[in-house]
Design a protein around this nucleic acid. Structure first.
Length: 313
DNA sequence: AAATGCGTCAACCGCCGGAGA
DNA sequence: ATCTCCGGCGGTTGACGCATT
């Protein structure tokens, strides 16, 4: 027992040093990405097997897109797959070459935080333009190539170790011409669920999608029917969808959002705006990545919403 | 220039399931 | 059948850097 405690105290935690990385890489070169616990039992590293595995999978594995932001297409894929599979980050990551489940998870939680904050900020309409943080770029996915079968899984560490790392995607082709017709149906308000405190925004399709469990390893999500009139960013789509959700209204009605109570739910909320106004600016890195919508948010955006019932009702 | 807020990322923790003894 | 160990996964946290006030 005492010995065990001493042993535990020798386990290193925290950031990895370059030397440790080298040892780990060397081990994987020799034995492959397995026997993680033997790394410590052999005295090579004072790290747990789990820690070694995590380090390898998330940082050292070849062909990782370390440091590369998610492309618009990748974001779309994540959003699409999350709606199908729920928070199955490892599964989702298998559709994104070079991305790990941790990447996807981080991306998603950042996005959730952003959405939650945007929704909170919506309590003060002027805050759209005043909040500089909401300048975050949010892509509009005009260009939505069909998802191809994953060439390899993010957990396929056997992938040739010596291959160089690259930020280029094996399946994403930015040269495709814009096709609004391929936009996924991400504005279905039925998809969304917001918990009681309004902080956690999540898709409800978890466990409800017939494909969610049935899909094999190389199953690919169905690209829903086109929504040709949609030109809003995904987040604006999310947001608008939530505004149409009665539960959303209930949750957020008590907030200081007078605008939310002065419209007409059921009216066509998304106007056939084509690449004009918000969400259509060009960007150097990604020509089809527009600016975020909130800076340029129409002041009357919420005018189409029905008055909310009072909490007492 | 300092304070603050926010986003991103790396790493840890706990739970779970499978394999083997 | 049960127990233990290991690996995989999802959730969470804390550090850090950047932008803004």
């Amino acid at each position: 027992m005492e010995g065990k405690r001493v042993e535990m105290s020798q386990i290193r935690k925290g950031p990895w040093k370059a030397e440790e990385d080298e040892v780990l890489i060397s081990h994987v070169k020799k034995y492959g990405p397995r026997d993680w616990s033997s790394i410590r039992s052999k005295g090579l590293l004072q790290r747990t097997g789990k820690s070694c595995r995590l380090r390898w999978v998330n940082k050292l594995r070849p062909n990782l897109k370390n440091g590369c932001k998610f492309t618009a297409e990748e974001e779309r894929v994540v959003i699409e797959l999350q709606s199908q599979f729920g928070n199955k980050w490892a599964k989702i990551a298998t559709y994104l070459p070079g991305r790990t489940d941790n990447d996807v998870k981080n991306f998603w939680s950042s996005r959730q935080k952003r959405l939650a904050r945007i929704l909170q900020n919506s309590g003060t309409p002027s805050s759209y333009s005043k909040s500089p943080k909401i300048k975050k770029e949010v892509p509009v996915f005009h260009n939505v190539p069909a998802l191809e079968a994953p060439k390899f899984s993010s957990s396929m560490e056997e992938a040739s170790y010596s291959k160089g790392q690259s930020c280029s995607s094996s399946y994403i082709d930015n040269s495709e011409t814009t096709k609004l017709e391929q936009l996924p149906d991400l504005v279905n308000p039925k998809l969304y669920n917001i918990d009681a405190n309004g902080a956690q925004l999540e898709l409800m399709s978890r466990g409800q999608n017939p494909y969610a469990e049935a899909q094999p390893q190389f199953f690919f999500p169905q690209i829903p029917q086109p929504q040709p009139y949609l030109t809003l960013s995904l987040e604006s789509q999310d947001l608008l969808a939530k505004f149409e959700d009665p539960y959303f209204s209930q949750v957020f009605a008590p907030m200081d959002v007078p605008e939310l109570g002065s419209g007409h739910v059921g009216q066509p909320f998304l106007e056939p705006v084509r690449c004009s106004g918000f969400g259509a600016r060009e960007e150097t890195d990604n020509p089809v990545t527009p600016d975020t919508f909130f800076d340029d948010f129409p002041a009357d955006m919420f005018d189409h919403m029905e008055p909310l019932p009072s909490p007492s009702e």
